[in-house]
Amino acid sequence: MPIPSPYAERLSRIQIERHEVDVTGGRTAYWTYGPSTEAQTPSEGGDERAPLTVIAVHGFRGEHHGLEPVLAYLPELRVIAPDLPGFGETAPLPGRTHDLDAYAQWLTEFAAAVAPDAVILGHSFGSIVASAAVAGGLETPRLILINPIGAPALEGPKGVLTKLAVLYYGLGAKLPAALGTALLRNGLIVRGMSIAMAKTKDSDLRRFIHGQHDTYFSDFADRDVLRDAFVASVSHDVREFAPDIDVPTLLIAAQDDDITPIEAERRLATLFSDAELVEIADVGHLIHYETPEEAAGAIRRFLRVPVARGR
């Protein structure tokens, strides 16, 4: 039985539509949240303008649902949330290794197809994909990174656990197919990952987080895609691309993140030509689940979006 979402009532007020588009040789499933491009909102001068559009890229092993708690607090925006190739309802890219180059190319082509010049947002692994794409030429007026991977995962506060994860994904790839896939989708291991990341002491919120991971964390196409994406996630970090990004960038970082310590996030902010760092206390790598209202507030201020009436 699904665990009730603390954010369901807010999300129910937002229009959500599912779409598909062909990019990079494959078909990408994506969802739009909020006002459509046809829905116009009056500006201060009394004229009409289209709603601001954001493309939101989820993290490793996730899919578009993971960012919904943040979107629930941003009803003023039009947000396009795709499932990464090989995850959720998006099929793998045919004939491709799902490395960072492939994901960056996919995001660049996806943005060009559905929302040229949209603001780009990435969470966790999505922060690496978004940064690589923008540094590589994806045009965007602004970049937003939530829980950015600002240092090598193997060097983080829980580098030992990351090394164990390397062994885990390597074993999953080497075992016979059925056995390897079963290991990678093992419910006890998924729950262990969820427990390790959650910081909240709110029992209802913890149940919701674990329920989300139970439901979506194993929604990958096959073990090859998962292995490729994992290797990409631990072989790269945002530092590689920050010096080549010249658009205003917002970093929303957690002070208790076990993957990238806050000191590394502070150093990361200095590598951009124009970056703002917002730190959120008492939360780890799950800002999008545990403190979505704070994250949404930072995004709204960064984009200079007024709060919608009645929200």
Rank of each mutant, 00 (worst) to 15 (best):
D101R: 14
E155D: 14
G88A: 09
L154K: 15
A112P: 03
A113T: 07
V166R: 14
L74H: 02
A177D: 13
A72E: 04
G150W: 00
P92L: 05
H64L: 15
P92R: 04
R185V: 00
D117G: 09
S131K: 14
L74G: 02
A178Y: 07
L74A: 10
A102G: 02
A102W: 00
A182Y: 01
F87Y: 15
A178L: 13
S124V: 05
H65E: 15
G172W: 02
A165K: 06
A177L: 11
L77K: 07
T181I: 03
T140H: 04
G172M: 06
V119H: 04
W106M: 02
I149E: 02
L164C: 04
P92G: 06
P148A: 11
G137E: 08
A133M: 11
P92H: 05
T108L: 00
L161N: 13
G156N: 01
L67N: 09
H65P: 05
V119L: 08
G66M: 14
G122V: 06
V166D: 15
I120E: 02
T90K: 04
A182V: 00
L145S: 01
L100P: 00
P82L: 03
H64D: 13
G126K: 06
L100F: 05
L167M: 10
G95S: 05
I144Y: 05
G180Q: 03
A153Q: 04
I144S: 05
L167K: 08
H123Q: 15
L138N: 02
E76M: 11
A133Y: 13
T162M: 10
V114C: 05
P157V: 08
F125I: 02
N186F: 14
S131R: 13
I149R: 03
L188Q: 13
E109D: 14
K158F: 11
A130N: 02
L107W: 04
D99R: 09
D101I: 09
D83V: 06
G159I: 03
P92K: 03
W106A: 00
G187E: 10
H98Y: 11
V70I: 15
P152G: 06
V79D: 06
R142E: 14
K174G: 07
L67V: 12
P94W: 13
L77C: 14
L74R: 01
S124E: 08
A102S: 14
G137Y: 12
S131M: 13
I149L: 15
A151F: 11
T90V: 09
D99K: 08
H64T: 12
P176A: 06
D117N: 15
G170D: 06
N147S: 15
K163C: 07
A91Y: 07
A102H: 00
A115D: 09
L145G: 00
A135L: 13
T97A: 15
L93F: 11
N147K: 10
P148R: 12
I120R: 01
A115S: 14
G180S: 08
L121C: 09
H65C: 11
V134L: 12
L107Q: 03
T140Q: 06
A173F: 12
L175T: 07
L74Q: 04
H65L: 12
G95A: 06
D117Y: 11
Y169M: 12
Y169V: 09
L188Y: 14
G86F: 01
G86P: 01
G137H: 12
T97C: 12
Y73V: 08
T97P: 03
G150S: 05
A72M: 09
D99C: 11
L138T: 01
Q105P: 01
L171K: 08
G126E: 10
